[in-house]
Amino acid sequence: MKVIKSLKIAAVALAASAVTLSASAQDNTLLGAGSTFVYPLFSKIFAEYGAKTKVQVNYQSIGSGGGILQLTNKTVDFGDSDAPLNDEQAKKMGAPVLHIPMTSGATVITYNIPGITKPLNFNGKIIADIYLGKITNWNNAEIKSLNRGVNLPDLPIVVIHRSDGSGTTFIFTDYLSKVSPEWASKVGKATAVNWPAGLGGKGSEGVAGLVKQTPGGFGYVELAYAVQNKMAYGNVQNKKGKLITPTISSTSAASNVELPADSKVSLTDTDNPQGYPISGFTWALIYKEQKYNGRSAGKAKEVLKLLWYNVHEGQKNCAPLNYAPLSKSALKVAENILKSATYDGKPIL
């Protein structure tokens, strides 16, 4: 009997402490969910932000689609996606959603040809034709004409793509759709597509593993992943005909073009002559009208302050982690979008 009594007391005490905890933590804890791509950057920024402001941000990297779903269900304060909402997703949200660019990332072309150490050059047509299964050997004349002086071997190309749905695939297929009409009509762009050729590897590590092991392997991964794992990656010719090495600065340059006010734009095949052509934003997503589900004005303010911090002070964390900081024009658009958020119809910032 005594045991049960003391257990009861403990339970009551626990419940009471939980109540007080949740009351005090209400405005100080923000919940986010979405893109796995941005997770390393976010966790760094949020740790820093937490130390400065005592606001704890809990971000769960469950994938862009999951983040959008969580925001639709209003279980998180903000989501993050590597692709803008599609029509169906926007409709399900039920209210206007703001897309705020957080950073951009590049997708690089990686390959494995024994004996070749110099970075190879590619253009959109070659990459598309390889993924369409039309160019099947490394000694192809088109590849050779872009890589004079490189002794390309007679070796079959083993095409490797992501097998899981991914923002990286979205950016990559978006690029291919722009540079190759055939790709656009036959395959199209999505987080997962009906690949005409090649093998699928699960995750960046799956693609990287297959490329590294297979002589003649050809695949795509995020720049950060390729750099951290010391993989060979090629230069890609952009719209202005320049061969661009994927770097943080050439990725930032890709977004330094005139951007639409809602920032929902694909950065691939950029007009900027210095820009790397296969890159894209990742967007934080919030409801434009922050008064919903009985949220307090304080909480809405905290969310906006956090995202404001992300696009300003937070940006210095990008480069060390191989993310591309927002370009000048992207920052300006992001600021305007954040200022357009409202609480009960009144601007928050």
Binding site: G65, N86, E88, D164, G165, T191, A192, G200, K202
Partner: peptide
């Protein structure tokens, strides 16, 4: 040659399946 299984497609594509 390569192939695919039902369980593996579900695991691969479920998280990012973005329309009904």
């Amino acid at each position: 040659g390569p192939g695919n299984t039902m369980a593996s497609v579900i695991a691969n594509e479920f998280t990012e399946a973005d329309h009904t």
